[in-house]
Nucleic acid binder design. Structure first.
Lengths: 189, 189, 189, 189
DNA sequence: GATGAATGAGTATTCATTCAT
DNA sequence: TATGAATGAATACTCATTCAT
């Protein structure tokens, strides 16, 4: 829709992106204006519009960045430990790591809202991210649970549960028994 | 905090509530102003404020309504069928029923956002709802899966997965294998 | 302009008046709505309009009440003590009594504003009050300062200074040397 | 509290200020909205907020302007004529000049109200202005009434009387004998 | 007499977006 | 490249006033 990746001033875009994510995580989406983001990035509103032709454009790139960040977290946890740890520990670690990053969760919820509110491009990005994470989880689990044939279903259950866990964390529900849940999920036959 | 359930003009409050939910589900929270809600309810903005002293006040009642609606859906599915159906079918039915109600999901996401954005009253309401649903699910499952001792953990996994499923549905992810997931969840030993 | 002293329900009007003055003094004019006044008087807004056909109408009666209250204060101070005390003490007492009644001063300022903002009836009321107070002061001073011929000018200086003193008190200026000022005013030859 | 004198767009701030004072003097504070002020200044409401981040912020600058204007008037009258005229004439001239500027008086009353209604910053400004005027009057009078030791008390009486005179003028009281009052004030021994 | 319900015009404030320089 | 200035439409909320019962 909007012109993206103009290839000009990539460092500037990076600077904007970093600061935008930082302030969005701190203040929450609805409380952050473009003026706030510009100020956080140390540039003027005019300059912001020089690099991003609309708010939707900026939000798309922020989403991109955000998704990559989650993917990196998953990758680090799943890939690096897949050989040394058992499935339960990995799953628990993912639960803990992803769910407890509350500021990131708040940003996630905000971007979700933007996507759901009719931004088709953003929705596509979320769907792609889900696929990507699904593949990573499946691949990781297959390496540990070699003999199991239900890994894909397990991955779906786990991923949806992970998303739901983020939500629960955001509304302050501290009582989720993440460790037993991880045990239960991997204790399947 | 805000005076609620003053018992005055209950019918009109109901009218407002119904229409507010309807339009919020259709247009999404961020795109709906109090003026829109008043228009949808066929009253003036002034009248809206006669019944609800602030937007937060109105949203709280909408949340109340919304939660009750989900609870009723769950209750109907879980309680009524608990004796005649097996656990897998019940779980699948809940998945389908709750997840596929897309408009309701959009409202859910909006209320969630409001809660997360610092509305403590609303957060409490969400936490209470989670407890309530957890109890219902647990009770229902215990009736069917009499011999199982892991019902509570199963309930947690299922409920988080259910929430995550709502999110996936909202971003247009049609590929969740809900039936196999339900089977997998109840197939545990 | 508006129909006043309808002779019906005088006690109710009195009740409204008393409570209106009380709450206006407490909360200040701009922060007090007719709803507040009705609530303070323990009646509905509808009833308020039954007794007063407009806000201006109510404010006129409040002004009437307020002026009478100041007049009574002046009368009590000037008349009762005119024989036993000297002019300086009386003047100082008036200064102190009128200026230090801060809540009443705040109401005075509010009514003043209303009058100045184009309410001719109210302006007339203020002018009449000034005349009345002027006469009282003059009469009182003449009784004490029998031989003086400049009493009327003194009364004008004193009355304007008194009004100015109320203002100074309202903005928190505590440094007015009221006693020396009273001495100075009566020390004239 | 609010960021003032940002040094940006001083000319436009001046334009806003001038027009704000003009329209406030004409219509009175309660009848003038920010929309009115913007219209009077020939700019949009948005632009008004570009220069003033809140109504209180704008009002503070207007007060500043207004106070300076009165100070300048006083200075011109007191300082320039202090050597050539006698005390009575100076005092009378101040009475006349300050009291008769009715539009300015209306603005004064409005700002007073704002200050009294809990705006601490504004109250401080009024107190400071009183001190400043007091010093000017005292200095001016001392130059003319060299031998007098009661100049400070006289200055207090005169300044309060001056404020009271403004009020009387605002409610349309034309009968104040300013000349005799000035004579009386300087005729003290 | 008394009131609850309804209203509509008005208020300060926000913010994404545009544009001349 | 970069920005300061300007905008207008939108937003939540207030309040004096009306009126049917």
């Amino acid at each position: 829709m909007a012109a993206r990746s103009k290839n000009k001033g990539i460092d500037n875009r990076d600077n904007i992106l970093k600061n935008a994510r930082r302030i969005l995580q701190k203040k929450g989406g609805q409380n952050t204006s473009l003026a706030d983001i510009a100020r956080a990035a140390g540039i003027s509103k005019g300059t912001l519009y020089y690099y991003y032709s609309s708010k939707a454009d900026l939000i798309y790139d922020i989403t991109q960045d955000h998704m990559k960040s989650i993917t990196a977290t998953l990758l680090k946890t799943v890939e690096e430990k897949a050989d040394t740890e058992n499935a339960t520990d990995i799953m628990y670690l993912v639960y803990e790591t992803v769910i407890k990053a509350k500021a990131r969760g708040r940003l996630h919820l905000y971007l979700l809202q933007e996507a759901v509110l009719g931004n088709a491009e953003l929705q596509k990005r979320f769907q792609d991210a889900y696929s990507e994470w699904f593949d990573m989880i499946t691949t990781g689990l297959k390496r540990v649970l070699k003999e199991r044939t239900d890994v894909e279903i397990l991955a779906h259950v786990f991923l949806t549960s992970l998303t739901g866990g983020i939500i629960q964390q955001l509304i302050g529900n501290k009582s989720l028994p993440l460790k037993p849940m991880a045990q239960w999920l991997t204790g399947n036959s």
